[in-house]
Design a protein around this nucleic acid. Structure first.
Lengths: 226, 226
DNA sequence: GTCTATACGGTGATAGAC
DNA sequence: GTCTATCACCGTATAGAC
């Protein structure tokens, strides 16, 4: 492990090395939260996962709290990158863009128990830690706004429909979060494919005029993950 | 505070006194998780909230871990009692029973940030603590089964429809969880009334033949909480 | 049953060698 | 940059008086 690390380091600038080492430690924090839980995660458990000393962790993040905040930001960045790139790759059609946004939240890299459990750990602490709250809120809002734009285009942009877009976005995004919780808790019987099937039929119910295109878009997702 | 406690104690059996004191400490645990978070909740913070000594908390629950498990069980019991009583009070009509189950999850006593944040704290720890997982899973399953019965009656009980009930239940319950998360994180702009409105319109979409009765049932909820 | 006092281990963070 | 050694503190849990 130490060899692999050193190999990865060689031939890079100082700044790049620093960034890589920080990311390694953040990944170790995620692993630790998975193994022993958020409450039991200490500098020692993180250091052990990362294969560095406890002081090494502090050197790179100053304090434990800063490390946890950076870990949350890392999750948030990865999430934002995922839906942004999905949107960038999609056509201009709002139905396709909505499907792309939904499908992005079920990509294996984003949507797996390892990551979901960490999100839940931070959400659980968010009420008592304003910084977590802010990061989670900003991440959620950016994504919801992206979805709002597409729903507004599809439903009709007049102000008289504003509550309808707004509710449609809350409905779709809320359902995604519900699927995530079920993937976390009911992992023995509930799979990503179940979640995707439910999301597809729900989108078809919400946008019955575009049922065929939605089916077509979800077929593509199924092919990609097969 | 101590006077109020002693007043509550007088004239009760030993067992009842014990139960009351235990419940007071559990309530204090919930308050502590709200104030300082799950990770920072210690015997000291709980004891301070409860107005007893640290050793007093241990006396009643043996260990901190046992206290946390009892706290989760307390949440779970309250939740189960809520939907069970709602079901018992409902008529025999499946639509009314489904509405009753949904509305029960948005009762102020069950659905408020104080309680939701504690649920999220436990969900966040669940992956690394099998006992939490088991309690959460059992609670979820009982409730989902209750919903499944009603959906099966409404959709048609043949085996050929099984995936349809199952998905419908996952859809409704998933959406409820999504609404809870939004109530937790987006509390400034998203209210219980927003969640109820979205749930109503969603149920109407899922069961279009019963839209009128659903509207009627949700009117009753609105009147009750006004 | 409830308290005060305390044992004991672990925790976050620092100092200083290399 | 990374380590070992160390600190002061705080965590859980116990002992024993009342």
């Amino acid at each position: 492990m130490i060899d692999a690390r050193q190999k990865e380091m060689s031939g890079r600038s100082r700044a790049a090395q620093r960034a890589i080492r920080r990311e390694q430690i953040i990944e170790s924090t995620i692993r630790s939260i998975n193994k022993v839980g958020f409450a039991e995660t200490t500098l020692a458990t993180v250091a052990k996962e990362a294969g560095v000393s406890q002081a090494g962790v502090v050197f790179h993040f100053k304090t434990k709290n800063a490390l946890l905040i950076e870990t949350l930001r890392h999750l948030s960045d990865a999430y934002n990158e995922s839906w942004s790139s999905a949107l960038a790759a999609a056509s201009d059609d709002p139905v396709q863009r909505i499907c792309a946004l939904v499908a992005a939240d079920f990509r294996p890299s984003i949507c797996n128990r390892r990551i979901i459990s960490v999100w839940y750990a931070f959400w659980g602490e968010a009420k008592s830690r304003p910084t977590y709250m802010k990061i989670c809120g900003a991440s959620d809002k950016a994504r919801a706004d992206a979805m709002r734009v597409e729903c507004a285009r599809l439903i009709g942009g007049g102000a008289e429909n504003e509550q309808e877009w707004s509710d449609t976005v809350d409905l779709i995004d809320g359902l995604i979060n519900g699927m995530w919780l079920q993937l976390l808790l009911d992992y023995a019987t509930f799979k990503r494919s179940d979640a995707l099937r439910i999301m597809q039929s729900q989108l078809q119910r919400v946008f019955p005029d575009h049922a065929d295109m939605i089916a077509h878009e979800f077929e593509k997702v199924k092919v990609r993950s097969a």
